[in-house]
């Protein structure tokens, strides 16, 4: 174990790590998007350096106009707009995933930063913990 690791152990709650939540699944068809968001909300209390990445069908989590009454499920898309209040402000969306789906940033319910493949890859490489659900 390195000295840095030892210091992390001693620091305990004072450690700040880079956490990336990778969202690659569409909402409602499976529960992953909703339960991922639940981790983000709880995790916000831990004062870590949090980023959210939306790639592949994960971009569908952020689309405007979701109406879930007909399927009897809760529309959780407004929660993405509330993330700012939890100091979760780094939302990154993959440009190619948007383009492949005929979407652009204006179709999304929350302001995001759109990244190209190289930028997203560099973001991933800097992370300490990568959560995929």
């Amino acid at each position: 174990m390195s000295d840095e690791d030892m210091m992390d152990d001693e620091a305990g709650g004072g450690v700040v790590k880079k956490f990336l939540y990778v969202n690659r699944k569409a909402p409602y068809g499976t529960i992953y998007a909703l339960e991922s968001l639940e981790v983000v909300l709880i995790g916000a209390a831990f004062d870590q350096d949090v980023s959210l990445a939306f790639i592949d069908d994960g971009v569908y989590q952020l689309t405007k106009g979701q109406q879930t009454d007909g399927i009897g499920m809760k529309n959780f898309s407004p929660t993405y707009r509330a993330l700012e209040m939890y100091d979760v402000e780094k939302l990154y969306v993959d440009q190619d995933s948007l383009t492949a789906r005929g979407l652009n940033a204006e179709d999304l319910i929350v302001p995001v930063e759109v990244l190209n493949t190289t930028q997203m890859a560099e973001l991933m490489e800097t992370q300490d913990v990568v959560f995929s659900f």
Partner: peptide, 20 residues
């Protein structure tokens, strides 16, 4: 226990591995 235990594992462990 709560989801905080997962975040704590991310913070305290040197590596986190996801199986899904």
């Amino acid at each position: 226990s709560g989801l905080g235990q997962l975040i704590e594992a991310g913070i305290q462990a040197d590596r986190l591995v996801v199986f899904g």
